[in-house]
Amino acid sequence: MSSQKKPAFGGQAVMEGVMFGGRYHTVTAIRRKDDSIDYFHLPRKSRPAFQKLKKIPFIRGIVALIESSANGTQHLNFSSERFDVMPEEDEKVQQEQKTSKLEMIFGIAAVGVLSFLFGKFVFTLIPLFLAESVRFIFPGNIEQILIEGFFKLILLLVYIYVISMTPLIKRVFQYHGAEHKVINTFENGLPLTVENVQSQSRLHYRCGSSFILFTVIVGMFVYLLVPVEPLSTRVLNRIALIPVVLGISFEVLQLTNRLRNVPILRYLGYPGLWLQLLTTKEPKDDQVEVAIASFNRMMELEKETESGLKKAALV
Rank of each mutant, 00 (worst) to 15 (best):
H41V: 14
S133E: 05
V93K: 10
M298S: 05
A131L: 11
I126R: 00
V134W: 08
Y175A: 10
L155T: 06
P7C: 07
K6E: 01
F173D: 05
S294F: 07
I108C: 07
S209G: 10
G21L: 03
Y270G: 00
I242D: 01
V14M: 08
G11E: 05
P243C: 10
A110M: 12
R44F: 01
E179S: 06
Q276Y: 13
E304H: 00
I142W: 11
P263S: 07
M220W: 03
M220V: 15
R297H: 14
I37R: 01
Q4H: 09
I154K: 09
E187F: 02
D285T: 11
Q51F: 04
I264M: 13
E132G: 01
H204Y: 08
R266K: 15
L259W: 00
P139W: 12
T233K: 07
K170Y: 03
L153R: 00
K152D: 12
I108V: 09
E81T: 06
K6M: 12
G107T: 09
H204K: 08
R47E: 01
L277N: 12
E289C: 04
E306R: 05
P191C: 05
F121E: 12
M19L: 15
F138W: 02
Y270H: 09
A178M: 10
D90K: 10
G140W: 08
Y267C: 11
M299L: 14
R260F: 01
I183P: 05
N184L: 06
S79W: 04
R82W: 06
E195S: 13
F116E: 02
E229C: 03
I59T: 06
L277A: 09
G140N: 09
I242R: 05
K101W: 13
A313W: 02
R44A: 14
L114R: 02
V122C: 10
I212A: 11
F129C: 13
V162Y: 09
M165R: 14
S199G: 03
F136Q: 08
F116H: 04
V222S: 09
A293K: 00
W274C: 08
G22Q: 03
L190Q: 12
L153H: 01
V85P: 02
Q144V: 10
G11C: 08
V262R: 00
G308P: 01
H176E: 08
G219D: 08
M104W: 08
S201M: 12
F83S: 15
L273A: 07
I212Y: 00
K303N: 10
I248G: 08
Y24L: 13
Q200D: 04
K311G: 08
E132A: 14
R266S: 14
P43D: 07
Y223L: 13
V162I: 15
D84C: 13
N141K: 10
I145N: 09
I142C: 07
I242Q: 04
